[in-house]
Amino acid sequence: MLNLHGYGMRLFEGALVTIELAVLSLVIAVLFGLMTASAKLSGNRMLHLLATLYTTLIRGVPDLVLMMLFFFGGQTLVNSLSDAVYARFGVDFFININPFVAGVLTIGLIFGAYMGETFRGAIQSVEKGQVEAAAACGMSRSLIFRRVKFPLMMSHALPGLSNNWQVLLKTTALVSIIGLSDMVRVATQASKATFEPFTFMLFVGAVYLILTSFSEWIFKRLRLKYHAGYVGAAND
């Protein structure tokens, strides 16, 4: 049977790191995405330009390069900052960028750019009439957003959201390269130590497959729930 050579526990911990990383990054990505979408739809030229610059740059450069840039580059930036503070004020401090935090922020930032497009499309596909009907009932702006615009937007955004989540989940594998002890890194170390790469890589691959299949199932259920209003044709 499957022999993990005592790496089972570490692989399990690695899997937890992967999941935590993915979920926290998703939260950041959704926040960035909502901000980007509203900036692009705000009608403010400056905001629109900034958001466009952000999405273009992020989506034009590989995730791994951005990760290395933020992680390694961020560390030197912090280092030279602390050097300068020491030189000027004689205060000595040292900040070590936590790879987990860096990973979450970087992945969140990257996927925020993709989420931005998802949300923008979703907001635009909310029919004008739905909002007008709410306004015509005397609803305030915030009430319209909360009760009508947001739920309708979410139902339009779900397919894109589910897609982005799947890609994000797989992208977390890249943090093994910048030194985070996720599932993939544990598997790489185990492969090298035991000379059994097939065992460990196939195992981790299978875990990813389970995770992606499981989340696909969840999203399918969510879509059914949120699309309740859209299923079924007119029957008179």
Partner: peptide, 21 residues
């Protein structure tokens, strides 16, 4: 399904380390 459901880096490692070993 399998190749789209797993990270590319795993596939790469399997090819690279796998064949070497």
């Amino acid at each position: 399904y399998i190749f789209r459901g797993t990270p590319l880096i795993i596939q790469l490692y399997l090819m690279y380390y796998g064949v070497v070993f």
